[in-house]
């Protein structure tokens, strides 16, 4: 049944990318346990507005856990306390009356803060641009059933492809490593026949871009897996490491023979 909560929020406020930020305390009253976490912030923002204060900026869009736009560090946990749950799907029934909730943005060098809780995650786009695709132009495709994919491989590919690109893996990692994100994409393609032609080039290029963006290295603490709302597993990182190692030998050969490409 619905209950009402009185809460104390401590929210990171920061005017702009260069500005100094700080935690500001806001009491909120009468929050329904049926409300989602973001709806609770909506209520706060309406109240701030009434008082003539500027609302808290935060990223959100689909509010059904799939677009990957929402991104809050809630009491030190990415997307809050529930496993495999995005912030937008976190509901207030998870909290108790009188709780204090600390809300911060993702913190990583590669995700600079734009304002309040909003960060810039375009580094992820650039990592995908480096190789997160199969190079097939429209018009080249053969009949879909000519490519047979065993159900188990297809399922493993889908498990990895489920990544929503929210960046929780980076934000939860003490090294701000993007290994889980990169591993998910590399695994998705490595499991499928369509991913084979560029398999090694992909692993090399995506890892190189990941490094260039300033993401840290992986030291196997598995925080990323615990934080991932899409259930991506660290076994993908092991897969990425194998792909990367193999590609270190194979790619050198491949690039020699593909110089005529154009």
């Amino acid at each position: 049944m619905e209950k009402k909560l009185n809460l104390t929020l401590k929210i990171w406020r920061q005017k702009g990318p260069q500005a100094q930020g700080r935690l500001v305390t806001y009491p909120v009253q009468g929050v329904s346990t049926d409300a989602s976490f973001l709806e609770m912030l909506d209520v706060l923002n309406e109240e701030l507005l009434k008082k003539g204060e500027e609302p808290v900026a935060f990223d959100h869009d689909c509010r059904e856990g799939i677009c990957g736009m929402c991104s809050l560090m809630i009491n030190g946990q990415t997307h809050g306390p529930d496993r495999e749950t995005t912030t937008c799907q976190l509901h207030m029934r998870r909290f108790k009356d009188g709780d204090t909730i600390v809300i911060e943005p993702w913190r990583a060098k590669s995700f600079p803060i734009l304002k309040d809780l909003v960060v810039d995650r375009t580094a992820f786009d650039r990592v995908i641009a480096a190789g997160g695709y199969a190079s097939v132009n429209v018009g080249n495709a053969q009949d879909a059933n000519c490519i047979l994919v065993g159900k188990e491989s297809a399922d493993r590919a889908m498990d990895a492809a489920a990544c929503i690109g929210c960046g929780a893996c980076v934000a939860s990692c003490k090294n701000a490593s993007a290994m889980l994100f990169v591993a998910a994409k590399v695994t998705h393609f490595a499991e499928l026949p369509q991913g084979q032609p560029e398999r090694y080039k992909r692993a090399q290029a995506m890892v190189a871009q990941m490094d260039a963006e300033g993401f840290g290295g992986c030291t196997n603490t598995y925080e990323c897996e615990a934080a991932c709302p899409a259930g991506i597993q660290v076994t993908t990182i092991a897969k990425l490491n194998r792909e990367y190692l193999k590609s270190s030998f194979a790619y050198a050969e491949e690039s020699k023979s593909s110089e005529g490409e154009g």
């Binding site: 097939v136 994919v149 065993g150 492809a161 991913g195």
Partner: peptide, 14 residues
């Protein structure tokens, strides 16, 4: 056809 060629992991039979 195009989506499969791109590597979209559609559901498969055994």
């Amino acid at each position: 056809d195009q989506c499969v060629a791109q590597g979209v992991p559609f559901a498969r039979e055994y």
